[in-house]
Structures are given as structure tokens and as C-alpha cells.
Design a protein around this nucleic acid. Structure first.
Length: 302
DNA sequence: AGAAAATCCTGCCGGC
DNA sequence: TGCCGGCAGGATTTTC
């Protein structure tokens, strides 16, 4: 599933292609991929056609592309990959199965490209959104060469910074954990507390921190909270270096290639295998409508 | 108000 | 060979 490392790989791959490019054509092949777009602001294709994009910005799993010129100038093209979304850069004429939205790009240096938004399960989507000030008045997210400034898409404004953001508030995160009387994994998956973590990296970070997924968040000592955040950052950084996790050929980068972090997983999807740390058997339990993978021997409930 | 459950969505895969 | 039930889990909405 696309989580922070996968979305960052996509953002970095798109950055050189979209920065300075003009959208010359928009084809919405499945309207459901626009489910977050407010039609009152105007037709998606009409707003976007003729627009020049200035960069690619990410916070957590949210992506957006500021519009510098054209009908949507001052607003952004926002995208979320959901469960199975992909953004593929292709030679014009090269279609992909399950393409829901296609953007034709004209870049002053790189020429013409297709950007195919592919999404099997339709949990992801694109929209035109407006910018609002960030609650903390600090830069909105990570944009590579593009400096986003203190403006964030309205629909992403409620999301916390991600743990690789230099402005991430460690203390607010620890305070949030101390306040929550719920399982620690629920807290890690709460994008308003910490963004960018999904099921894979939650399980991996909890394994690394030797914490059971359903241990009460508020009862975890401060030293272990610190360690958990450290493990979260370590897992996300390592996955990013490996190009993300490709599981069941679900996630690919903008060229359609897989990431390699699946080979480095210690807990997620490893049920039945030996825990790499203690040799116990990794088990999978159903929790929050999803699988939780952990080692019952070195991740005790209490 | 905070926590938990319900909801959306469909291609793929294993089993028969 | 072909059908079909089950599976995957992001974020939002609804319920408790």
C-alpha cells in the first residue's frame, strides 16, 4: 500500500516531469476517481487544461501540484493514491490498464508525456483544491526543489506533519500518545497525530520497538515513546532508500518499477515465519479491519 | 468528545 | 477450464 516512502518515490519521480509543464489535455475515464473534487468550483478537465504546474509537494501520503498559470492558477491539483493508486509517466499513446484519469503534459525541455493515474480499487483520486495557511505557519511539506511556503490544500490541512518533516513536532506527538486511551497501532495510523504511516510500516515500527499493536498508548513510558518514534523514522528512511515496498505488485514508481523493501520486512506478511530477532513465530491477527503482524514472544501485550 | 465500527471499492487469486 | 467467494486496507462517515 502506498505509504510515506512509496508516495515520496512517486513525488520525486514526478517532480522533474511536472515542474514547468503545461497540461494540454485531460481525460477523465472514470468519474469516480474525482470523488473528492467539488464540481461547484468547475469542471475538473476545464480547470486543468492550459494550466502550468510548478512543482510536486508531499505531506505524509498527500500529494499536490501547485498551479502557476492558467484557469486554476493559485490553486493546486491534489492527489491521493489511496490503496492502489499509481501515477505512471508514459510516452504519449502508451496506455495502462485501469487508467482512471489521463493528463497530457507538455514540458519545455522534456517534450510531451502522458501522466496516467491508475487505480484498481478507486480509494484514491484527484481534485482541484485551494490553499489555506498551515496551522503552524511553517512550510506545508516537502517539495524537493520547489519551496511550498506556508500554504496547504484545504483537504490536507487537518493532517499532522510526517515524521521525516524537519518541522514535525515530537513533543506534540508524545503528548498525543499520552492522551490516547486506545491501542498504540491505532494511534500510529491516526493521520491527525502523525502522518505517512500505514499498515505495513506501523507493523514494522512496532516490531522494531518491541511493542504489541494493541498495547494502550497512554501507558507506554516516555523512553519507549521516544524509541518508537526513532524506529518509525528508521523504518521509513530505510524503505525510502530501497524505493518503497512492493507487495503483490500493488505499488510501483512512476516508471512502473517495483521497490525492494519487501525483502527487508521483519513482520508484515511474515506470518508463519521465524522472528528475525528471537526465532519465535510471527503471527497475523485481524485488528481494525486489517491484518496485524507481530511476534508474540518479543512483542508482549503487557 | 473520544473511540470504535461501518462504509466504500474491484481486480486478482486460490480452491474446487 | 471456468466460476466464485474471499481478500487487500486507505480515509471518511456514522454510531456509540
Amino acid at each position: 500500500m502506498p505509504e510515506l516512502p512509496e508516495v515520496e518515490v512517486v513525488r520525486a519521480g514526478l517532480e522533474p516531469a511536472v515542474s514547468g509543464a503545461i497540461i494540454t489535455g485531460v481525460e477523465v475515464l472514470d468519474q469516480r476517481a474525482l470523488k473528492r473534487h467539488d464540481p461547484i468550483r468547475g469542471d475538473f478537465a476545464a480547470l486543468l487544461t492550459g494550466s502550468r504546474l510548478s512543482g510536486a509537494v508531499r505531506r505524509g501520503k498527500y500529494l499536490w501540484f501547485p498551479v502557476a498559470e492558467g484557469p486554476a492558477a493559485g490553486d493546486v491539483l491534489a492527489a491521493h493514491l489511496g490503496m492502489s493508486g499509481q501515477m505512471l509517466l508514459r510516452e504519449p499513446g502508451r496506455d495502462d490498464k485501469l487508467t482512471r484519469i489521463r493528463l497530457s503534459l507538455e514540458h519545455p525541455e522534456h517534450g510531451e508525456l502522458w501522466l496516467n493515474f491508475v487505480d484498481q480499487r478507486l480509494f484514491g483520486g484527484m481534485m482541484i483544491d485551494s490553499l489555506v495557511p498551515t496551522p503552524d505557519a511553517l512550510p506545508a511539506g516537502f517539495g524537493g526543489a520547489f519551496e511550498p511556503g506556508a500554504l496547504i490544500p484545504r483537504t490536507a490541512a487537518h493532517i499532522a506533519r510526517d515524521p521525516l518533516d524537519p518541522h514535525f513536532d515530537d513533543r506534540a506527538f508524545f503528548a498525543g500518545l499520552a492522551r490516547r486511551r486506545t491501542g498504540i497501532k491505532r494511534a500510529l495510523l491516526d493521520q491527525t497525530l502523525i502522518s505517512g504511516i500505514g499498515n505495513i510500516y506501523a507493523d514494522e515500527a512496532l516490531w522494531a520497538a518491541r511493542l504489541h499493536y494493541d498495547r494502550e498508548s497512554a501507558g507506554i513510558p516516555q523512553t519507549r515513546r521516544r524509541d518508537l518514534l526513532e524506529q518509525v523514522r528508521g523504518v521509513l528512511r530505510r524503505a525510502l532508500v530501497e524505493g518503497g515496498t512492493s507487495f503483490d505488485a500493488q505499488y510501483v514508481n512512476v516508471n512502473g518499477n517495483s521497490g525492494y523493501f519487501a525483502h527487508s520486512l521483519n513482520a508484515y506478511g511474515q506470518q508463519g515465519k521465524a522472528c528475525p530477532r528471537c526465532g519465535g513465530e510471527i503471527v497475523r491477527e485481524s485488528f481494525m479491519n486489517r491484518g496485524s503482524h507481530f511476534c508474540p514472544r518479543c512483542q508482549r501485550a503487557r
